[in-house]
Design a protein around this nucleic acid. Structure first.
Lengths: 335, 335
DNA sequence: TTGTAGGCGTTATCAA
DNA sequence: TTGATAACGCCTACAA
């Protein structure tokens, strides 16, 4: 049995209300008594029972992180950032693998309405009207990580995808590439699909390089779709010297396709990815990629959430974190 | 505000105890009333407030999973198994990244003593006396996943590492290899270090193949240590035709070393790994490996934990799950 | 078979 | 500044 507020009160020879005050608003208690209580708390190792406070409708010291799939290294690392901050704040984080499934999402959300959480971090998927409506019902702060909330006025932490993709294009061009293919995310994905493709194309255009529709193949960010996309791309444009993939997993897929076809990467075809997941340095040749500060995104999103939980009026300022190109071995310098 | 048991009672025109009974032991209520209550529950969308029941019965509907690092794909997948079962059981799971750090482990444990959890799954690390003592203090069921509990009588779910390593050896031998190196886990790791090395060596011996100490290098299961180990191994025994690595990450590291040295895998040197993490199929050539049913290990461990939570006297039967060799492209047939 | 009442540990209100 | 007390929602003796 854990010590309760009564045990502390008895030990310190005060009433339970005083103990409660010491815990919640220490300034309202005369120093002498406060010290006695503090000492008793220390001695007994007292900590408020979260269920009792929860019942009283106070904080649950629990936040939820809604992510597509923890098995995906990108999300795993982002989640790690969230978790580390939550731990610092002595909060628990409930992990929700949505598998991008609407039903599953709703199931979790209705669960949270009952169970009560203090806040929610929604990761990576595009926010729909349905999502937004459900968030509102929750009545707790919501922060977005690695996805955009502009449209709904939701605070977010992400990277500038457009600019990052644009930088990838510049990098390829500076390395002498002119005939460049793109493996994009879904054409209707407003987060990592549209902006990355647009950023890349616009940069090409700025260099006076036309970029036709046949130089793009679409995937779903995973290895297999990258493999497939590369097959298509190579089928229609064998003259390509470089490919930009909107995710590292797709880049790896593309690379696998090429290598298994006996093509040499990067000598014959260069590849640049996006994300900088841990695997990217493990393959050979090691993948050159646009790095997102994934872990940091998780951390900042969590920090922002706790700030808002602590102070609900706080108009959270969304954050756009920097990206950088990690140069490894998959881009050939043709100059 | 969510509907409470009182709302349901009023709506169904019965007392709150009747409602409570309908929820907890439906058989004890006359069918007629039961139906009325059920209907009211349905109508109002009533669900018991977990804080209230938690306060009363001190069941938290929360388990903890203690893993080294969620960022590691092997653990991520195992964790996914745990989480899926927990969700089925309407439980939350708190994730604990120990980073193999003793202090961190203790911090979590003392936290749980306060916060209360219904059970704990301890993943992968060897159980020490200190661990065991701490588990006992917790007073809740503990189940081990991917590690051994024989010594302390703790129930576990794992694979037969000795046999699996032995199979790896046979596989290499059947493919005509005679000069084989091993990248082992730490020499003092009783879980995945000692048994895998022993199983491998014994199998070699059974085929009449001597296996000297210089044919072994030790790593710590991660990519970099595999890379390093391969460098050493190759330095002392350049005549090797095959290498067994005690983890896929190390296998990938070894492969990277060889490829970056211009060696051809598998033509010149074959490699077989252990785990079958998702990355292993993404590299080229795709890694041949001994597959552990990781996800299943997580699921079974969680299922076992809930069984024990439900019935504490239940003498949980430890589980040894099957392994299999997943043949891909890194082992050359020399016959 | 059903209902009443007490208690789980906290916090907030109100009096002292 | 402090203390007594009433909720919060649920479960389960115990009484009817």
């Amino acid at each position: 049995m854990n010590p309760t507020i009564h045990d502390v009160a008895r030990q310190a020879n005060v009433s339970i209300s005083t103990v409660s005050r010491v815990v919640n608003q220490p300034l309202a208690v005369r120093k002498e008594k406060r010290d006695r209580v503090l000492q008793a708390i220390e001695q007994l190792g007292y900590e408020p029972n979260p269920f009792a406070s929860g019942l009283r409708d106070r904080a649950t010291k629990t936040i939820a992180a809604m992510i597509p799939d923890i098995t995906n290294p990108f999300y795993a690392e982002l989640f790690r950032g969230i978790e580390d901050i939550a731990r610092e704040q002595k909060n628990n984080v409930i992990i929700c693998n949505t598998d991008q499934d609407e039903a599953r999402f709703l199931e979790y959300m209705s669960y949270f309405k009952k169970k009560k959480i203090d806040g929610l971090i929604f990761v990576s998927a595009a926010v729909t009207d349905a999502h937004h409506a459900t968030f509102a019902e929750l009545q707790v702060p919501v922060v977005l990580a690695a996805t955009d909330g502009e449209r709904f006025g939701l605070p977010y932490v992400k990277v500038n995808d457009y600019a990052a993709a644009s930088d990838a294009a510049s990098f390829l061009i500076k390395n002498g590439h002119r005939s460049i293919g793109v493996i994009s995310g879904p054409a209707d994905d407003p987060i990592a699909g549209i902006p990355r493709l647009a950023g890349f194309r616009d940069a090409l255009a700025a260099y006076g390089l036309p970029h036709g529709a046949n130089a793009v193949a679409y995937g779903t960010y995973d290895f297999d779709s990258g493999y497939e996309a590369m097959r298509k791309l190579y089928g229609t444009m064998p003259e390509l010297t470089a490919v930009f993939a909107a995710s590292d997993a797709m880049a790896l897929g593309a690379m696998a396709f090429l290598q298994r076809r006996g093509m040499e990467v990067p000598r014959q075809i260069s590849i640049i990815g996006f994300d900088n997941i841990s695997l990217s340095r493990m393959v050979t040749p090691a993948l050159t990629t646009v790095a997102q500060p994934v872990y940091e995104i998780g951390k900042q999103a969590a920090a922002m959430l706790f700030r808002r939980i602590g102070n609900p009026q706080d108009e959270a300022q969304s954050l756009v974190l920097g990206h950088e190109i990690v140069v490894r071995d998959t881009v050939w310098n043709r100059n």
